[in-house]
């Protein structure tokens, strides 16, 4: 298994090796104007490779969310280079960025952000439907994914009928159902109790880890650090330290068998 590479203080250095799914160099991002301007990212360098689970940790306000928003093609940076799967995100227009997200990213949010009126299968099927699958086929593929995540008997339940852990598993299914190359998880265990959090991380590890997929997890929860291949500590808009994780991945990748629309 390849390892995550976090490079520090390499201003505008060229992207690293071809196996890097995410390459960030000297990323700058500020919010506000004039005296209210806040420099959130200060020349941040960050790499994530396929087949690894990279944790991004740090205190509140250090820039983690901004960094993953930029990596996730949701936010643009003011300066620096960002390449995702070899593509320069700064050269893409908004419409192309949306397509890029849909094709290559899976997102798991802290608050799950499931559509309350849709059942588990319908929620998990959204990325496939958005990519042009028929509703029926998308829900069938989504149900298979939910089944692999242990929610086979709950596919017709709406979020309000599911526990927090179950809802997060639906979110994981939604993030993985279209076999994205990169999965970004924002505090995936923050809304869960300890046991549920551990269970969700185990499922995430088992389901998401694949030699072609990079998983980036933003978290405060040190109880789940054991799942990380690499842990990048962030402070004041830069990566301060990187430590090797102790992850022992299950090699059983879970992906839908049929992903053609």
């Amino acid at each position: 298994m390849s390892s995550t590479t976090i490079q520090h203080s390499q201003k505008h250095a060229p992207p690293s090796g071809s196996d890097a799914a995410v390459v960030c160099r000297s990323i700058e991002k500020s919010f506000g104007e004039g005296q209210a301007r806040v420099r959130v990212l200060r020349g941040t360098d960050f790499d994530a490779k396929a087949g690894e689970m990279t944790f991004l940790v740090g205190p509140s306000g250090c820039g983690k969310t901004t960094l993953i928003s930029i990596i996730g093609a949701i936010l643009s940076c003011d300066d620096g280079d960002i390449r995702v799967l070899g593509d320069d995100l700064r050269r893409m227009r908004n419409g192309r960025l949306a397509e890029f997200r849909l094709d290559n990213f899976g997102f798991i949010f802290q608050q799950f952000n499931l559509l309350p009126a849709l059942n588990a299968a319908e929620n998990a099927a959204i990325p496939l439907v958005a990519r042009g699958y028929s509703t029926r086929k998308a829900e069938r593929v989504a149900s298979e994914m939910l089944d692999k995540l242990g929610l086979g008997e709950h596919t017709r339940k709406i979020p309000a009928q599911l526990s927090g852990g179950q809802q997060q598993r639906v979110a994981i299914a939604r993030a993985l159902v279209h076999s994205p190359r990169i999965v970004i998880c924002d505090e995936p265990t923050a809304s869960l109790d300890a046991a549920s959090g551990q269970r969700v991380m185990e499922l995430l590890r088992d389901a998401a880890m694949d030699h072609e997929r990079a998983v980036i997890v933003v978290t405060h929860d040190d109880r789940i650090f054991r799942f990380a291949d690499r842990i990048a500590h962030m402070a004041d808009g830069t990566i301060s330290t990187v430590e090797q994780g102790k992850a022992e991945h299950s090699k059983t990748a879970v992906a839908p068998e049929d992903t053609t629309p």
């Binding site: 996730g72 949701i74 419409g95 949306a98 397509e99 890029f100 997200r101 849909l102 094709d103 990213f105 997102f107 949010f109 608050q111 952000n113 499931l114 559509l115 309350p116 959204i126 990325p127 958005a130 939604r174």
Partner: peptide, 18 residues
Amino acid sequence: ENLKQYAALKAIGLKNRR
């Protein structure tokens, strides 16, 4: 009430047109 969900759909990759 669904704005957060719309934002999530946007993040997932749905365009404004959609």
